[in-house]
Design a protein around this nucleic acid. Structure first.
Lengths: 337, 337
DNA sequence: CATGCAGTTTACAGCGCTGTACGTTTGCGG
DNA sequence: CCGCAAACGTACAGCGCTGTAAACTGCATG
């Protein structure tokens, strides 16, 4: 019960505290004999280093915070997993902070009322804008994810949304589709992702000599599959004709798919479908879902690289990294024959 | 840049360190005037308490670890979210530790090489057995989740799997189904959950005067939807007849559903389907999935209650809590008319 | 045999905070 | 106006570890 401290081990092994510390840390210049003697004392006494003390002494915590909107959103949980794994590989632990897209919670991420909790922060903002983040961000090492806010002063990792949207639409065009809908724009969505994706959508259509029909850009009330299903239902009720849908999100695609099934519509023959994020959902649907696939592994790797550089003292303006993406081709918009 | 410490604030406000500390902690016996003066100094200097130091001084970290197999499994991510929220409500932060069901990683959770990282642990084991856990578990406050291991010496929270399985099968029986399959048993699965669920399955069948047909208990090679799809495919190929499937897991249900779709089978008219865990998946499938719904909120609440009691010094043998469950009725096995 | 040097070990002063134990002031009944 | 709680405030010793600077050990070298 009585906690064993470094001094206890030192006394037992007949050496100084520092030598024990050196053994614990695998410091090279310790004689084999001493090392063994100390190790034995450690084992016998069941010594376990106290992290709080270590942190106070070193000023480092070995932890990074990951602030995301929702732990249980497939995209974020998959990204979290990658980041946790990548961090573990580099000797860091990850503290996940859920913002629920709440502005106050997002502010709190940056305001950072306490010190010595984490060494750095990876943050996927939703409701905060670039200017706000730029202003609130003090000197805690910080890397941003996603496209909601891209302050010039802060490191940032994302995929090329314009290109991804363009390529997706090009795939649909190559399938012979001409009436391609975009699902969808959400009222009150302040992020620039939708703008980028619409841009790529329009670029591809223009490239094929097609005028984008504004009615094909569907409006959605919220971010749930039910909302997207409602939007598709409304479009069908309006007699809107389309032969493909590019969805801003796998969840939207799931909602659309349910609605199309209900309408007795054949996917992909009558309507092809492309989702976004390539979450596990895409393989669970029927038919399986073609989806824009950000390279989540790279995303995690690059975010951690940037963050660790900052934590090691890198200063300078924000660095902006684009990580690769691809189109994960599945049954809802299959590879060309 | 120069960090502001308690002494700095104390000097600025003309009081002792301890008084500043008392203000920070809202200790009641501080005169309004002093409090205001100190608060002003805090604001002016931008003082932020250093958690590492606080932790070293108090011996508490205010953090709990949540050790789960996979962050990005829908069930675990949903449970994580609840636990994180419940913990936040009680002033704790959650450190998520991913074991990937790996025995070594699970051992590491208990072996606990370091001290002062977290005050307690919530652990959902998969590959460790009750005896092992009982033996390795030292004095860190610990609460177990799930049914893989139920050591008598450790606190534990779960749902009544037998009852849940029985009620599910009873629902299928009430729908008029008689050939009800169980999907499925996984080779090498050491958890007792499957056993409990099979028990409930058989109880319900016996109650209806039906002899359980062992061939209806499908074997699955792994835990992915693909594995479960393969199992269903094999069953269909064998000419096995069934009019309902109780799945041990929503993912299994998703795999089964895909396969039944492919076979042109009408869900629920020809085959009704019930999943398990009531994850978000259940609402995304087409048709939507009836699923056994553990009360995750309660699960989180009870787990935290038990853990906090332990952290506050409760000693004694393991307490075992059953939290409520229900059957979330959806289209794949709809409510009775 | 003194000198230098690399390898090894040590003493000790903090890291920034809180708990304890103890002064000092204030308010109020007698 | 005294005396005595209650309210308020303080000094200081750690919490357990690491970084620094310095000391000590051989051992090869000149």
């Amino acid at each position: 019960m009585a906690r064993v401290r470094l001094t206890d081990v030192a006394r037992a092994a007949g050496v100084s505290m520092k030598t024990v510390s050196n053994v614990v840390h695998d410091y090279p210049h310790v004689s084999a004999e001493t090392r063994q003697r100390v190790q034995q004392a450690i084992d016998e006494l069941g010594y376990r280093p106290n992290l709080s003390a270590r942190r106070l002494a070193t000023g480092r915590t070995g932890m990074i915070a990951l602030a995301i909107p929702e732990i249980d959103h497939p995209y974020f949980s998959e990204v979290s997993r990658r980041i946790a794994e990548e961090a573990a590989r580099r000797g860091y632990r990850v503290l996940i902070e859920q913002t629920l897209s709440d502005t106050d919670a997002e502010h709190a991420v940056l305001r950072d009322r306490e010190e010595g909790l984490v060494d750095g922060v990876i943050f996927h903002p939703v409701s905060m804008g670039a200017v706000e983040i730029g202003r609130l961000h003090k000197d805690t090492p910080l890397v941003l994810l996603g496209e909601a806010a891209i302050p010039l002063t802060t490191d940032h990792v994302m995929i090329d949304n314009v290109a991804a949207a363009r390529e997706s639409v090009e795939h649909l065009l190559a399938m012979g589709r001409r009436r391609i809908a975009f699902l969808g724009t959400v009222e009150g969505d302040v992020t620039v992702s939708t703008r980028h994706r619409l841009l790529g959508y329009q670029e591809a259509l223009s490239g094929a000599g097609i005028d984008a029909d504004p009615r094909l850009v569907l409006r959605v009330a919220g971010f749930s599959p039910e909302d997207s299903a409602a939007a598709v239902r409304a479009a069908l009720a309006d007699g809107l004709e389309f032969d493909a849908i590019l969805c801003r999100d796998d969840k939207f695609a799931v909602g659309a798919m349910a609605e199309l099934h209900a309408a007795g519509c054949d996917i992909p023959n009558e309507v092809a479908l492309i989702g976004w994020d390539d979450t596990a959902l895409a393989t669970y649907t029927h038919p399986s879902l073609t989806s824009v696939a950000p390279d989540k592994q790279q995303l995690a790797r690059v975010a951690l690289e940037l963050l660790i550089e900052r934590m090691e003292g890198h200063v300078g303006v924000g660095r902006h990294r684009i990580v690769p993406h691809s189109l994960a081709l599945r049954a809802s918009a299959p590879p060309l024959a």
